[in-house]
Every structure is written in C-alpha cells, then in structure tokens.
C-alpha cells in the first residue's frame, strides 16, 4: 500500500481538523488515495522515502500536498522550504492550510514558492466548500508537470 498512487497528501496534526478535512473531501468524492500524516517530520520522511517510510518509492509523488502551517517538530513552513529547495520535489504543488491570515506567514510561504495559501474558514459549510474547491482544482483542473 505504501507504493500506491497518491492523490492528496494531507499533513495535519490536529485530529479534528483532519477529520473535518477528510469528511469534506469524502463528501465530494475527492478522498480516494488520500494519505494523512500528523507532523512535518513524518511528511519529510514520507516524501523522501526515509525513516519509517524507507521502503516507499519517493518517485511516486502526490498530486498535491495540503500542509498545515503550525505543527510540532517540523512546522509546515520548514516542510515547504525543504520541498521547494529540492530539485526532486519542488514541482509538487503545495497548499498551505492555516488558521489565520498572519501577514508574515503569507509572505514567507509565497517567498518559499507555495502554490496556494488558504485560511480555513470557521463555519463547516464554508470550510467544506473551500476544501472541496481546493481538491477539485488541484486534482482535476490543474495540469501539473508529468513526474
């Protein structure tokens, strides 16, 4: 299962947020081949096939990464920096998912080459709609380079 095709890589430490995100995606049939990781360190190991994911083929790249910004160990911004600085992974679209519109986070994310920056809406109706639009856009509308 580790080397299956992945569509969405969700990196989110908050269980509730992850559950709501996955629920919203499922509701719109966008949660097939979704992988959920709970912190930045796991995300790095997964993307580069290291540590607990050393048997995973890093050539199999997610179509999009939904990355929470505030996580323990390695933050979303650090994960973004590492991904965008590496020739092998810099073309993977990354969507920053955050709770707030902190100007410096928006600034830094774009400086690092983020593909989208989204503030998670408070109400579930809006949240669900936003997540669905994001999933639909990155999985169906956007044309990413062939890997």
């Amino acid at each position: 299962m580790e080397n299956q095709e992945i569509q969405i890589l969700l990196v989110e430490d908050n269980k509730s947020d992850a559950a709501l995100t996955i629920r919203a995606l499922k509701k719109h049939n966008l949660a097939n081949n979704l992988v959920h990781l709970i912190d930045g360190a796991q995300a790095i190991d997964f993307i580069f096939g290291k540590g607990e994911f050393s048997s995973r083929d890093p050539e199999i790249k997610p179509k999009v990464i939904f990355l929470d910004i505030k996580m323990p160990k390695i933050s979303g911004l650090e994960v973004l920096r590492i991904i965008k600085a590496d020739e092998r992974t810099k073309r993977i679209p990354v969507v920053m998912m955050t709770s707030s519109n902190e100007e410096r986070d928006i600034m830094e994310s774009h400086q690092l080459g983020v593909n989208s920056y989204v503030v998670k809406p408070l109400g579930f109706a809006n949240f669900s709609k936003t997540i669905a639009e994001l999933g639909f856009y990155w999985l169906a509308v956007n044309n990413a380079p062939r890997q």
Partner: peptide, 17 residues
C-alpha cells in the same frame, strides 16, 4: 490566532455536521 481557532472550528464543524 492559530490555537484558539482550531478547537472552535472543530466545535462549529462537528455541530454543523
């Protein structure tokens, strides 16, 4: 701005569901 909002989103989200 981050930590206070996340549980609120959960309360709101799960109640709406």
């Amino acid at each position: 701005s981050h930590d206070l909002r996340a549980p609120l989103r959960a309360i709101n989200g799960f109640t709406e569901i």
